[in-house]
Design a protein around this nucleic acid. Structure first.
Length: 237
DNA sequence: CCATTAAGAGTGT
DNA sequence: ACACTCTTAATGG
């Protein structure tokens, strides 16, 4: 990991970034001078579960998986992150160690802010604090929806749900989902096993709902896939 | 560039 | 879940 120090927030065009949206504030602007840029290679883990919290990351470019060690050491992928997203935010508040690990799925650039400087700006700038609070509320909602999907959906539905989620998050290039994940990683997100994912993907392929090429997966009809999950939601109310 | 090897996909039991 | 084959990606000369 190489670390450089430079304030590039003013010239940064990442509109998804919470800091970028609040640069009109003088306090936030001064805070951005505390930024450290970190480069991270594919496969590298930059947050380790259980490590003490030193700060928080904003993803400038690249893709990241956020995971947690579940029961019996099985990896559970909590979410994926793309450009502009906050990583490591759950370590704030009363926690003193990160509850999750974060690993680069491809080469990444990360913006890092220390816990101290972040806490200062949160105390001084209510509009920024409010924006972060909205973000937290939204994250909580998403995690509740995920609990529901894990507990009430069938394995097949969870795999479809995972495909749609990853597709929504990263989009497509040449018809294929724009991120390369192993079947194992799909399984770790869907809360199932690699074999189950492989089998369900081959059924979906036979039903011409998806197509694959190596690790790449393309969706023929997101509507048709979505429909299968919607029916489920209908019966649940 | 090609050959060897390692990693991951896919299938049957 | 395990064992196996086949395919693709990574490595090194």
């Amino acid at each position: 990991m190489t670390v450089t120090s430079r304030n590039a927030c003013v010239s940064c065009n990442n509109k998804n970034c919470l800091i970028n949206k609040n640069l009109n504030s003088k306090i936030v602007l001064r805070f951005t001078e505390e930024r450290r840029e970190i480069r991270c290679k594919k496969g590298q883990q930059f947050i380790m579960e259980g490590a003490s919290v030193t700060g928080l990351f904003f993803l400038l470019s690249g893709k990241v998986k956020v995971s947690r060690t579940g029961l019996m050491g099985k990896e559970q992928i909590v979410r994926f992150a793309s450009e502009g997203e906050i990583i490591g935010h759950r370590g704030f508040g009363t926690e003193e160690s990160y509850p999750i690990s974060a690993t680069a799925l491809e080469d990444c650039k990360l913006c890092y802010f220390s816990k101290e400087s972040l806490q200062e700006v949160l105390r001084l700038e209510p509009s920024f604090t409010y924006a972060l609070m909205l973000f937290y509320a939204n994250e909580l909602n998403k995690s509740e929806v995920k609990v529901k999907s894990l507990s009430q959906m069938t394995v097949r539905e969870r795999v479809i749900d995972t495909l749609l989620y990853v597709n929504r998050k990263f989009g497509q290039t040449n018809g294929y989902i724009s991120v390369i994940l192993s079947r194992r990683e799909y399984a770790d997100y869907a809360g199932t096993t690699e074999e189950q994912v492989i089998r369900i993907l081959s059924s979906l392929k036979k039903e011409t709902l998806i197509f694959t090429k190596g690790k790449r997966i393309g969706l023929h009809s997101t509507q048709a896939l979505q429909r299968e999950i919607d029916e489920h939601n209908f019966y649940l109310g």
